[in-house]
């Protein structure tokens, strides 16, 4: 187990290193000067023209006139001090731009994780209890078909149904523009109202995984001896299922949650664009359209690091939940 954990940390670290290297070499691998191409791309009708001064700043910032190893060292030094460079489009530090948008992404990803985990566990338990009945088979077929639709297409469908056809939910944004709130409750309600569809989309796309995992582990767990013992002791069905079966079946679900966040960070980029939700996914798209390279690199780094942190956290939590795992 110790060996396993070492390899896990090694893997995370080497993944981070690979991302840093990709981040470092990509702009340098481009033919010519990456900053000359920024001059005349339009963003929403606005034309960005880089002044000679700015151009010099970027050449200087990336140290393109120095040898490669020196560039890499200074790049690492900048990262360690939290300096991600300046965004060309927003004309402010990249870290500030990311901090402005990251909370929205965290809001929908975290709530989608919570919603899909809870509902997946509940549905999985129901399904495992009623297995060999018709309702389980219907649920399972429906869930599996659902899982094959990628999240952004699902988001488009939900948007068309709920926002365009029934006009129940807003088409875009995270808050109502120019709204005056009567109190904090109003504001929270408005934010929830806008976040509803993105969260629903993300949760639905992740639901099947949790559901199937819960169902299958529960079915395996219920064949174990300690379940028979619990029944033999005369415990009620509810007690047996919740205290003895579900508790043990939840362990793999916890691990799954970590992976889920990783998958969702990829999907959220597209889903945010479907709902025009102002998280880092939207920012990434506008940065790509505007060829805002420092911002693109910064966002990639933030996404990668957050995925790695989630994995590490899950690893720690797992150790706490299952004492058999030696840390």
């Amino acid at each position: 187990m110790v060996n396993d954990r070492n390899s896990f940390i090694f893997r995370s670290l080497s993944t981070l290193l690979v991302i840093l290297v990709i981040n470092f070499f990509l702009p340098r691998m481009m033919p010519g000067d990456p900053f000359s191409t920024t001059s005349a791309d339009e963003v929403g009708g606005e034309i960005i023209v880089m002044t000679e001064e700015q151009h010099l700043y970027y050449v200087n910032y990336y140290g393109l006139d120095r040898p490669l190893y020196e560039q890499f060292l200074s790049y690492m030094k900048n990262l360690m001090t939290g300096n991600l460079g300046r965004s060309i489009y927003y004309k402010m530090p990249v870290s500030d731009v990311i901090m402005l948008h990251l909370p929205w992404t965290i809001l929908i990803v975290v709530s989608a994780t919570v919603v899909s985990t809870i509902s997946g566990v509940v549905l999985g338990t129901l399904s495992a209890k009623n297995r060999k009945k018709g309702s389980d088979r219907i649920m399972m077929t429906g869930m599996i078909a659902f899982a094959e639709i990628p999240s952004f297409l699902l988001g488009l469908i939900l948007l068309l149904i709920f926002s365009v056809y029934f006009r129940l939910f807003p088409l875009a944004g995270a808050v109502t523009p120019f709204a005056h709130y009567n109190g904090p409750t109003d504001q929270v309600l408005d934010i929830l109202y806008h976040a509803f569809l993105p969260v629903l989309t993300l949760s639905l796309s992740q639901l099947t995984g949790v559901y199937l995992l819960t169902r299958n582990t529960l079915i395996t767990v219920t064949t174990k001896d300690y379940i028979r013992t619990a029944r033999a002791k005369g415990l009620g069905e509810k007690n047996v299922w919740i205290r003895h079966a579900l508790r043990n079946a939840l362990l793999p679900v916890v691990t799954r949650t970590g992976f889920m966040i990783g998958i969702m960070m990829g999907g959220v980029v597209l889903v945010e664009n479907v709902f025009s939700y102002p998280g880092i996914g939207m920012t990434l798209r506008s940065a790509v359209v505007g060829r805002d390279y420092p911002l693109i690199q910064g966002i990639l780094l933030v996404i990668a690091v957050s995925i790695l942190i989630c994995n590490l956290l899950v690893d720690k939590i797992y150790g706490k939940l299952d004492p058999r795992v030696v840390i």
Binding site: I19, M265, V269, I299
Partner: peptide, 22 residues
Amino acid sequence: MRVIDVTMALPSFPLLIVISAF
């Protein structure tokens, strides 16, 4: 095996976006 491990741990879609942007 090490290379495979790292490749599978990379966040593929964000990297896809970035690489194709560059």
